[in-house]
Design a binder for these strands. Structure first.
Lengths: 231, 231
DNA sequence: TCAAAAGTGTTCGCCCTACACCCATGA
DNA sequence: TCATGGGTGTAGGGCGAACACTTTTGA
């Protein structure tokens, strides 16, 4: 790196923080880390950490996620950059926040030894959060609510094969309102991006539902033709 | 500031860049600055600069805008944060991009002496841009196209009082398609957020159109009641 | 009186909504 | 056979799309 800076002023520190969402039976869940260092020692916080000089922002977010929670290869999207002056009591820290969506069943967080301080919390039963993480989490929640309706990102919260009831439940939890079963099915199936498999659910004490999967290829093709996903 | 950093690694530099949009008779315009320093000396670039240690990101964006273009008190919103490793040939620079909307008629850029290197360009006739600013501009353009349809931000590009034809033209330019005059008027007027004034346009060589204004108070009230703007 | 843009109404089809019953399966 | 959720059809209303003519004004 050349030493030809125009400005030699003090620089803010730069971090990433990640809001990881998942879907429980009944709740939207978020992954939190219990801090083992000051400040806010013992309090819960979003996973995250400093951006290294030789990694992109998304790389930093993925690295921190893996280190702190064991999660990898998951859907990740930039959320917003928080630059308030008093975010961190130690010094000026600007953080680029990301949000991630995972399928709870497919990722065993507890298996990772580094993740012993990580845990899932229901959005309705959150602990007090360190720093301004409550605000970041709220921003992420609003973004998810808004975006899930016009981008097919909800599928990231489900296993590869899912029932239409599961999909409907997902929207009901995120949008926080009930949907009509018949209308929901008609709408989803009329878009051709959710394809029937010939498998059915297992181990249920009643008629087993058919499993479907999201057909990304068809979605991409239709999108190029001007198709617009919307629930 | 206490000197208790956990990490003393090299830090990326942090800047802000701003995409300022305005509306000409026929085109969407963007404000660019001709660089007078290396790198990219003489090339056009987005206004922007380094974030000071004691100012928020938005404050930095507003300060740079005023210094470089003379624009102030305008609509400004965070766009995206760009953190690629090779954005700046000198060193690692992360930039928080904003976009701004201004009413061309209301802001005389040329009046500001510091803005002698600033100029408006039609989006259809852009010069080559410094750094990764072409990508930032493209991202801003996509955001504007997407957002203008479901948030009443388009009014920021018009004078306080405007004709429905002007408003329609705005949407036609940004969305890049023609709209039906009758349907457009019906839709806009059926939402009660655009109010008739009793003034008419001046100095036109034909029947003068009535002037309208955006009623933010009513918009906020309706929004609280669940109303959702959409064109 | 002409040119140029302002301003207005109606029909049609589609999609969203609301709503109730039969079906398949495991216990 | 019963309990549980899976799965389907239809009618009505509202909204967006398509479309053409009259009005007003200044030149």
């Amino acid at each position: 790196m050349k030493k030809t800076h125009q400005y030699e002023y003090a620089r803010p520190a730069l971090t990433v923080d990640i809001v990881v969402f998942a879907l429980d039976e009944n709740d939207l869940m978020v992954m939190l880390i219990q801090r083992d260092l000051d400040p806010f020692e013992g309090q819960w916080a979003l996973p995250g950490g400093f951006v290294h000089i030789d990694e992109t922002l998304e790389d930093a977010a993925r690295r921190e996620l893996q280190e702190e929670t064991g999660l990898k290869d998951i859907y990740l999207e930039q959320l917003y950059t928080f630059g308030g002056l008093q975010r961190d009591p130690r010094e000026r820290v600007v953080t680029v926040a990301y949000y991630a969506l995972v399928n709870l069943a497919g990722h065993n967080v507890q298996a990772n030894t580094d993740a012993r301080n990580a845990a899932w919390f229901a959005m309705s039963e959150l602990p007090e959060l360190a720093f301004d993480h409550a605000m970041i989490l709220q921003t992420a929640h609003e973004r998810l609510r808004g975006k899930v309706r016009y981008q097919p990102i909800g599928f990231e919260l489900l296993p590869e094969k899912f029932t239409l009831r599961q999909l409907q439940h997902l929207y009901e939890v995120i949008l926080d309102r009930e949907l009509d079963k018949r209308n929901f099915r008609k709408k989803v199936l009329s878009m051709e991006i959710v394809k029937e498999t010939n498998e059915i659910e297992k181990d249920v004490a009643h008629r087993a539902a058919r499993l479907f999967r999201f057909d990304k290829k068809t979605y991409d093709k239709l999108t190029k033709q001007g198709f617009h996903f919307e629930i």
